[in-house]
Each structure stands twice: as C-alpha cells, then as structure tokens.
Amino acid sequence: MTYEGFTALHLATANSNFEVASILLVSSKGAAINQKSLMEDSRAKRNAVTALYVAAESGDMATVNLLVSAGAETACTVTIKNKQTGETKERTPYTIAVDNRHFLVAYALWSADKRRTSSDEGKQADYEFPSELSAHHDAIKTRQQNEQAIIRTIIATVLSEHVNVGRRWRELGRRLGITEADLDDIRHRCKLRRLKEMTVETLQLWLDRQPYWPNIFDVWWALQDMQMADVADIVLATVQDERNLAGVKDKLDDSDESMESDESMESDESMESDEENGMEQNRNPHLT
C-alpha cells in the first residue's frame, strides 16, 4: 500500500494507536485534523482520506469519538476507484463504517452529525434513528443506555469529587455548551452553593441534552483545554474500567445480532399464529 500526504495522525489512526493520536491532537491543538491524503493498494485508490475516515473504516470507536469531539469533519467524502473495474463510488466516514459492519461507530458518527445540525439550526433535534442501522436498533439503544449510565457514574464519582473541577464548574459548563442562563439557574437551585452539587448539576444537564450517542470526549477535551489533563486521563481510565465491569464492548457481536434476529423471528411467528387463529375462527364462528 502506498500513501501520499499522510500525516502522523493518519498513521496513528491507521495503526489504531489511540494514545499517540490523542497526544498528537493535544500537542497540535487539533491542527491538520482534517488534512486529506491519498491511499492506494492493489485493489483500489482512495483520494481525500482523512484521519477520521481511516478510524471509521477500521472500526476504532475510541479514536473516532476522540476525533469527532476535536472537530473532525464527519461529512467529508472519499472517492474510491476500483482498479480492476474502473468503477468509482463515494463514501463518508459514516457510510464506510456501515459497509464494514462497524455499527456502533456508524451510530456515533451519525449522532455527531445530528448534534451539529441541531446546533446549527438553533434547536434541539427530534428523536430519529438512521435507517441503515434499523436492524440493530435495540442493540444500539441498549449500548447507548449503558454508556449513559457509565457516564453518570463518572459524574457522581471522579468529577464531583475533584476539588479543582468543582472550583471551575462554571468554566467547564461553558466549554460543554451550557448557557449562562442555565448556569445561573443551577447556581440559584443549589441554595447552599456547594461546588460539588453545582458540578454534578452542570454535567448532568450536559448529559441529559445528548439525545443520541453521548461522547465522553466532549468532557475530556474540555478538561484538556482547562489544563486538567490529569483529571481527563482519570476520566477515560475510569470509563474503561466501568465498561469492562459491565461487559460492554465497542462493537456489536454475533450474540447481539442473533438475539435481535431471534426476537424478530419470534415476532413474525407470533403474528403468523395470530393470523392463522383468526382465519380458523372465521371458518368456525363457534370457536372462542
């Protein structure tokens, strides 16, 4: 495989090296995050490839969320040319994730697009779900609920207990997009003005306003920008520990898909049985 214009960030994502990717992004403050390059192998030639596309193609959930939260462009289009047939097709990070069956990654990318769209329109997005992922709706929503529960645990423990976070709760809220009016309301409702209570209220408000996949890297980046890298790293480590304890993975496995398939088959069989019973009753009105 040959590369042209690949940056260190491209290489880090190509090798699924999250630690190096995060160091590069922090040290450069996100510079060149959307730089495009050429990828070519024996089968296909891809132009305008970004680091986010590389991470999405490989299904690297952590790096995808890191890049998205850092401001990576989610709608960038890559043209792929098949060397054997000459056919070309266009793909985005979202569509390539779907093609490669990285459904949680695809949902995280779709969620990022929806958040940005609703923000641009100045209103909260209505609940939707991508049609390409509809067959995996239940498994994805279960994972989303698990992620929300884990983040609530992080808020109630790591973040609420850290003194420096509490002292700067208002700054953290601003960096997470909480308005001054909302921050004033939190201060008013927390009558004793305890820093811990206001910190929790602020972070809970941020989480409650994530209608789709909640990206913990929004908090991580806010802490990095506040020169609190030590707390940011503790947050990530604790998130991973909580996921391990809960048995949560970054990918939907065969058991998730087979479970949905079984439920769908049971539902279909139940409907068929109901229809047969109805037909039988129509043929014999004395049946109850």
Rank of each mutant, 00 (worst) to 15 (best):
M1N: 08
G5C: 11
A8I: 00
A8R: 03
H10Y: 01
A12S: 10
T13L: 13
T13N: 07
A14S: 10
V20F: 04
V20I: 10
S22V: 06
S28Y: 05
K29S: 07
K29M: 02
A31G: 01
A31R: 07
N34H: 00
S37F: 01
E40R: 10
D41G: 11
D41Q: 11
R43G: 10
K45R: 15
A56F: 07
S58D: 05
D60A: 06
M61V: 08
M61P: 00
A62L: 11
T63F: 02
T63E: 05
L67Q: 03
S69L: 04
T74V: 14
C76V: 12
V78I: 08
T79C: 11
T79F: 08
I80Q: 14
K83V: 04
R91F: 11
P93H: 11
D99R: 05
N100E: 02
N100V: 01
H102R: 01
L104F: 00
A106C: 02
A108D: 01
A108F: 00
L109I: 15
S111W: 13
Q124D: 13
Y127S: 13
E128S: 15
P130Q: 04
P130L: 05
E132N: 05
E132T: 02
L133T: 02
L133A: 04
A135Y: 11
D138H: 08
K141P: 03
K141G: 01
T142I: 11
R143H: 15
Q144L: 14
A149Q: 10
I150M: 13
T153C: 13
L159R: 02
L159W: 01
V163Y: 14
N164S: 13
G166W: 07
R167H: 14
R167F: 15
R168C: 07
R168F: 10
W169Q: 09
L172I: 12
L172A: 09
R174S: 12
T179F: 02
A181E: 14
D182A: 10
D184Y: 03
K191M: 06
K191P: 01
L192F: 09
L195V: 01
T199I: 06
V200M: 12
V200S: 14
W206T: 06
W206V: 07
D208F: 05
R209T: 08
Q210C: 10
Y212I: 02
Y212K: 00
P214E: 08
F217E: 03
W221V: 10
L223V: 07
Q224V: 15
Q224K: 14
D225C: 09
D225Y: 11
D225L: 14
Q227R: 08
Q227L: 10
M228I: 06
A229F: 04
A229T: 10
A229N: 11
A232T: 01
D233W: 03
I234P: 00
L236N: 13
A237R: 11
T238K: 13
E242T: 09
E242Y: 15
N244A: 12
N244W: 09
N244E: 15
A246P: 01
G247D: 04
D250A: 00
D250P: 00
D253C: 08
D256H: 15
E257I: 15
S258W: 09
M259A: 15
E263V: 14
S264I: 10
S264D: 15
S267P: 00
S267L: 13
D268P: 00
D268I: 14
E269M: 15
S273E: 12
D274G: 06
G278E: 11
G278Q: 08
N284K: 09
P285C: 09
